[in-house]
């Protein structure tokens, strides 16, 4: 079969999803969707870890992916709490309004 996926297919898929997430972070103004794009990027990195783990036939990469998932969960909780906090002050979640941290 000519279309059998190899490691390279998984890596390129992961690069594609990472790039989509990156573009999402750059073009969207809604803070919640920016966080969703960051989740996309974290997921694509997980895919890379797991593909390499399968390629080397070792479970270490999977454990790294597991820790990334735990960190993503913690990050999502804190980030959404920040969004909630900003929404109370500004009545909006656009990242353009969150300029105070600059100063």
């Amino acid at each position: 079969m000519p279309f059998e996926p190899t490691l390279a297919h998984f890596l390129i898929l992961s690069a594609a999803v990472f790039t989509i997430g990156l573009v999402g972070v750059m073009i969207r103004r809604n803070a919640i969707i920016v966080f969703m794009s960051i989740e996309l990027m974290l997921n694509s990195v997980n895919l890379t870890f797991i593909a390499f783990a399968r390629y080397r036939f070792e479970t270490d990469g999977q454990i790294f992916a597991f820790f990334i998932m735990a960190v993503a969960a913690a990050e999502a909780a804190v980030a959404l709490a920040i969004v909630l906090h900003v929404f109370r002050h500004k009545r909006g979640v656009s990242v353009d309004e969150m300029q105070q941290l600059k100063y």
Partner: peptide, 20 residues
């Protein structure tokens, strides 16, 4: 990676997305 597939559905598809 069966374990991680289950964790993906439970943690990402369940917990994080419910939060979102």
């Amino acid at each position: 990676a069966h374990f991680l597939a289950v964790v993906q559905v439970l943690v990402y598809g369940g917990a994080i997305m419910v939060l979102f």
